[in-house]
């Protein structure tokens, strides 16, 4: 491998890692901070991707269209949907044990998949890359890099910054962190914890759906797409340390590098490299890299 190829592979790894963080960030909120084992997280991602596909013609006929307008409408819809979902289902789960959480969220996966099948069908669809970002940048004499992928990386970086800022610097972030460590105490201090959690859940849902929408043009939209990201999301959150945002970021980047260089260096065993890395890290640090609290 020459230097150019190595550098391009590093860019691939970095870019994939950021994309993983984007997808896993919602799970960090819901599983890591609120403590609900949410198997339906992959479905939230899938819903986002299908929103990007299905909303585009609707938005186009209503307000003239455009990828970014679709994105905005999609985020607003998913915040509302996430809020309702928490009110209807997830709010009953906080006090329950993990088995019941797993059962209900698994049930939701089946429901969402069937709804998807009924409403949109079982075909594979692609979502157009917005015109302004459709180009690509030459990297070597034969290889080019799609601009849209760089744009996705930029979005991820902005999101990383925003999440850190909210959690470390704002009052809302402080309340969420306090609620995560002691729910009753926060409640007795006069903070409406149920409402707060509803908001956090809606944000987690919206993050996953947003990730699905942003990833749709590069990943295509297909049945079962949620199941595939779910596992890798859990790997990221567990390696990073439950409840830690910087942990999730470091873990996502690490997985990006392990996966990319696994495919390059040991093509025959690329599939197990990620899980091997997870096993080794958990042997070394059973609580993950950055255990919160």
């Amino acid at each position: 491998m020459d230097l150019t190829t190595f550098l391009i592979q590093c860019l691939n790894a970095f870019q994939y890692g950021l994309l993983l963080f984007l997808v896993a960030s919602g799970l960090t909120l819901i599983f890591g901070i609120m403590g609900v084992i949410n198997l339906a997280h992959g479905s939230f991602y899938m819903i986002g991707a299908y929103l990007a596909y299905a909303l585009a013609p609707v938005v186009a006929s209503a307000i003239g269209g455009g990828f970014f307008a679709t994105l905005l409408v999609g985020v607003v819809l998913s915040v509302v949907f996430g809020y309702l979902l928490e009110w209807a289902f997830y709010s009953y789960l906080y006090e329950r044990d993990h088995l019941q959480q797993v059962l209900m969220t698994y049930g939701l996966i089946l429901v969402f998949e069937e709804l998807r099948s009924l409403l949109v069908g079982d075909n594979v669809y692609s979502v157009e890359i917005p015109q302004v970002l459709a180009g690509s940048i030459p990297l070597s004499e034969v290889m080019t890099y799609p601009t849209y992928r760089l744009f996705v990386s930029a979005i991820c970086l902005v999101l990383v910054g925003a999440m850190f800022w909210v959690f470390a610097r704002t009052r809302l972030g402080m309340m969420i962190r306090a609620g995560a460590s002691n729910r009753e105490m926060v409640q007795s201090l006069g903070i409406d914890i149920s409402f707060l959690y509803r908001v956090v859940f809606a944000a987690g849902f919206a993050l996953a759906a947003f990730a699905g929408m942003v990833a749709a043009p590069v990943s295509t939209v297909y049945p079962g797409m949620g199941g595939e990201v779910l596992i890798i999301c859990f790997v990221v959150v567990v390696i990073g340390g439950i409840g830690s945002i910087q942990g999730a970021l470091v873990a996502a980047l690490l997985i990006g590098f392990v996966d990319t260089f696994g495919k390059v260096l040991v093509p025959g065993a690329a599939g197990v490299m990620v899980y091997l890395a997870m096993a080794l890290i958990l042997l070394w640090k059973p609580d993950g890299l950055f255990k919160a609290g």
Binding site: M1, T5, A13, Q15, M143, F261, K263
Partner: peptide, 19 residues
């Protein structure tokens, strides 16, 4: 070049093809 099934992240192998 192999990609684990059903992984759909192809950038790494495409870079190898170009090389």
């Amino acid at each position: 070049l192999f990609v684990p099934f059903p992984n759909v992240e192809f950038q790494a192998v495409l870079t190898q093809v170009a090389a």
